[in-house]
Design a binder for these strands. Structure first.
Lengths: 162, 162
DNA sequence: CTGCCTGCAAACTCTTTGCACGAAT
DNA sequence: ATTCGTGCAAAGAGTTTGCAGGCAG
């Protein structure tokens, strides 16, 4: 955790190198958006990101945020979390762990990330059976906050706040 | 399969009963939309549904289609298939089988439904661990058509055309 | 008859895009 | 100097909604 904060500078360097390697320019706006993304502990929307990026550089516009998101996603520094709402969530890829599934609360609107390591096995199995290369997988469980609350993991961030 | 066609009338009756039981009215438009939904072999969009419903009753409007979709979904006669595109797919629930996962082709834009019976086990496991009642689950695999084509299941509907 | 249902069109929300200016290389 | 990146505002796409008239119960 303090490893993450300590690493931000080096991750920012990684981002700069990514931009350069793709022939893209290193602009203040892109760096501000990157910093804003990494300042979020959990999921954030494009609008959240805009707001926070503007605190760093108030010249950042909504358009630039939307144009930066695919770049950040492609660099694997953030990942997109689409849970079927009308806007997408994003999340800094601070720890490259195992496959993550989402538990989505219907009551408190939160999204919890949980490890689902067996999905790697599943992907392989599907890939073998159909002889294809899996690009990505998505596993989501929708549940009720009432239940989550009883389990002590809702409104308290017992797993991972969203 | 011919069981499905043979059953349409009785399923339509089920739909009427559902409407009545909810205090909703049985209108020609709703029946046309129901028939249109069941005339689709695979996935369809709201727009697809509108087009086909109008062939049955040309007074059906887009608004009514959008208002009917939640009703049909709630009745479990159709189900929503959200694969993260900017519009949703729907599908008649012709055979109440096991849990379905989606294989989404990035090249040919098709969606294949495959059985994933282990997901019922997974739901139960998650439910037990977090002591919650799972409302729904979603499992999606994104893959490349090239691979699917080599496997002989793309552009030919080897699994289930979408 | 009552009031839910409908069609129409405008409104909405998130995201994308055209354009002229500004900044990175 | 070039050329890519940016802000602004308008456009876009799918879906939702307000309203006045219409039809089911």
């Amino acid at each position: 955790m303090e490893q993450n904060t300590a690493n931000i500078d080096s991750v920012r360097e990684t981002f700069k190198e990514f931009l350069t390697s793709k022939g893209l320019r290193v602009t203040n706006q892109r760096l501000a958006i990157f910093d804003a993304a990494y300042s979020h502990a959990d999921h954030f929307t494009a609008e959240d990101l805009l707001e926070r990026a503007r605190e760093i550089d108030d010249s950042v516009s909504r358009a630039t945020v939307y144009r930066a998101l695919p770049i950040l996603t492609e660099s694997s520094l953030i990942r997109e979390v689409d849970v079927g709402r009308d806007y997408k969530f994003y999340m800094a890829n601070k720890n490259a762990t195992t496959f993550q599934a989402q538990v989505i609360c219907l009551d408190c609107e939160k999204i919890f990330e949980i490890d689902a390591p067996f999905m790697e096995w599943y992907g392989k199995t599907v890939a073998d059976k159909l002889s294809l290369n899996v690009e990505s997988q998505r596993l989501q469980v929708t549940a009720r906050c009432n239940e989550l609350r009883e389990a002590g993991i809702c409104e308290r961030g017992g797993i991972s706040k969203g």
